[in-house]
């Protein structure tokens, strides 16, 4: 590369720092996350709540095919924001790692251990020539020995633990709402409601029931569960955030 090209090299190559120490491709990947619809995670003493918005481009599309919440193992789920296809690769890394842990130690994998396996994988794509970083952020929620845990991964491959967090589009506003309303004593139901209300910030009309996907991992059972459409509809109606669905 010569002349002007050379000056731009750190903008193109993932493994090259800019003169002020930044990795532009990683920062662009963070922008890709912001272009995705939002996902919210909330940790309560009764369990972890994951909520994702499912946008539909057309009323003819089956919304169930927009997969943003994923069961990883009986006790862990992941919500994504950003490139869905990139997310799928990481979801499979996580699912495999959960089973590797089971095979290797005959133990269910810890949520922190799982998160770090995924972020270590993400990190390798920020340091390998010819690779592109993952344009996706994840929320990893589950139960560790009876304790609810909630982690975030970002395109740099850094793991963070949270009480409540939003990723994806409109992240700042949603996070602001969570910061104002979060309490350490939320019930699981309260966590679901707070997550829905936070998602609705900037979406004044609310959502059709199929516009949200909601999963929980309860502390007591330690089991991942996806809420049925009528349960989501009930919550939305109760919160006065129900709009008409695609079919009507």
């Amino acid at each position: 590369m010569q002349g002007q090209n050379q000056q731009q090299a750190y903008d193109r190559g993932i493994t090259i720092f800019s003169p002020d120490g930044r990795l532009y491709q990683v920062e662009y990947a963070r922008e890709a996350v912001k272009r995705g619809s939002a996902s919210v995670g909330i940790r309560t003493p009764e369990g972890v709540v994951l909520v994702a918005e499912r946008r539909s481009r057309s009323p003819l599309m089956e919304r169930d095919s927009v997969e943003k919440l994923h069961k990883i193992d009986d006790h862990v789920g992941i919500a994504s924001a950003g490139h869905v296809a990139d997310a799928r690769q990481l979801i499979d890394v996580a699912r495999r790692q959960a089973q590797v842990n089971q095979l290797r130690y005959d133990e269910t994998i810890g949520v922190e251990t799982l998160t770090k396996a995924v972020t270590d994988h993400i990190q390798q794509y920020t340091q390998t020539g010819g690779a592109r970083p993952f344009g996706v952020a994840l929320l990893v929620g589950g139960i560790d020995d009876g304790e609810p845990r909630l982690f975030e991964t970002d395109p740099s491959g850094t793991p963070y633990e949270w009480k409540a967090i939003a990723i994806g589009g409109n992240r700042e506003e949603i996070q602001g709402h969570l910061e104002d309303e979060y309490s350490d004593e939320l019930t699981l139901q309260g966590g679901i409601d707070l997550a829905i209300e936070a998602m609705a910030v900037g979406e004044e009309d609310g959502f059709p029931p199929e516009g949200l996907a909601i999963s929980t991992v309860e502390t007591e059972s330690g089991e991942y569960r996806t809420l049925e459409l009528d349960e989501i509809e009930n919550r939305l109606a109760e919160l006065d955030l129900l709009t008409e669905g695609d079919d009507e």
Partner: peptide
């Protein structure tokens, strides 16, 4: 060192 806790004996036996 990675997980901040000792392996259980069952995990050790499995390994």
């Amino acid at each position: 060192t990675r997980r901040g806790q000792d392996m259980s004996i069952e995990a050790l036996a499995t390994l």
